[in-house]
């Protein structure tokens, strides 16, 4: 498989703050690669470096064999970069926006209609509406249409689903998957852990470090312990009670359950149940569950500390 993005020892600092700590990463051509991490983990800095908009302090980055510093002019023709903030002209209509972006890249909507059709046809009925008056989901679709309109080789999407409703988010990922047919490499970041499963491979990033790079399945399968979902009638004290338990590896709130791991390999539900009953909990429900990316993320963070 061809490498589309090659990141070697990238370091970026803002004064005393280190945003990226000597990151290295390879992204293959045609894959959907997720950069998963919380706010402030360095995702946006990484994207701006990839988009040729920011210079790293040290290290090299090449996309499609072109250096982001030296060959930025050539690269800008091949990249489709969508920043985290909604970056379209709010006072222009849907149609005016997309026509403008087509012109910026020296093409026309008509010439590229095949690639944007899937997405643009959904917002085309509103083509005379001002972009500022669109819903969050439609804005995202318009923004994606605008970065796609010049058939980029690599799409850089920085948090495209932040602030978008769950249904639109799901639709959006469906669109991205269909874009694979065009052999476009898609690098996408998200703070939503559940979206990681939609990617071919992901990098988990925290405090400017990449903690793990793998397929989402592998990351999940490599969860080092057995994971239990615990639920009782007393939602307020369960977390602290579990953390006080002698053999607790980790305990985190996850939806309306607590995800719990035990430091021992031998573990019976009954022992924990007895402990919780002693603490006054009733309706105790303990069941083994499969780890999610979020569990893995927390586990990786915990290990680091």
């Amino acid at each position: 498989m061809q490498v589309a993005v090659k990141i070697e020892n990238i370091r970026k600092t803002y004064g005393d703050i280190v945003a990226l700590k000597d990151i290295s990463l390879r992204i293959n051509e045609g894959e959907i690669f997720g950069i998963i991490g919380p706010d402030g983990s360095g995702k946006t800095s990484l994207f701006r470096i990839l988009a040729t908009l920011l210079l790293a302090d040290s290290g090299t980055v090449s996309l499609l064999g072109l250096d982001v510093v030296k060959d930025y002019k050539a690269l800008r023709k091949m990249l489709g970069y969508m920043p985290g903030r909604f970056s379209l002209y709010q006072d222009l209509t849907v149609e005016e926006n997309i026509n403008l972006f087509a012109s910026l890249f020296g093409t026309t909507v008509a010439a590229q209609y095949d690639i944007i059709k899937d997405i643009y046809s959904q917002i085309e009925p509103f083509k005379d509406r001002r972009a500022g008056k669109l819903s969050g989901g439609m804005k995202q679709k318009l923004a994606l249409s605008c970065v796609l309109v010049h058939k980029p080789r690599i799409l850089l999407l920085d948090e495209p689903t932040t602030g978008v409703d769950p249904i639109s988010r799901k639709e959006f990922w469906g669109i991205l998957k269909r874009l694979k047919a065009w052999n476009i490499t898609i690098v996408v970041s998200t703070p939503y852990m559940d979206e990681a499963m939609q990617c071919d491979r992901v990098a988990l990033i925290q405090d400017g470090n990449i903690m793990s790079v793998d397929t989402p399945d592998n990351i999940v399968n490599e969860f080092p312990a057995r994971l239990y979902a615990v639920k009782t009638s007393n939602k307020h004290t369960i977390l602290t009670d579990l953390r006080d338990f002698e053999y607790t590896g980790s305990a985190f709130a996850f939806g309306d359950h607590i995800h719990f791991t035990d430091v021992r390999t031998e573990f019976t539900n009954d022992e924990l149940k007895a402990y919780l009953e002693e603490k006054g909990h009733t309706d105790i429900d303990i069941s083994e569950t499969t780890a999610t990316i979020e569990d893995c993320f927390i586990e990786l963070m915990r290990k680091k500390i």
């Binding site: 701006r48 970069y81 910026l104 890249f105």
Partner: peptide, 13 residues
């Protein structure tokens, strides 16, 4: 301020 400059910069313009 609106972030559109970022997109313009990233374009071949």
């Amino acid at each position: 301020e609106l972030g559109t400059m970022e997109v313009l910069l990233a374009s071949p313009m």
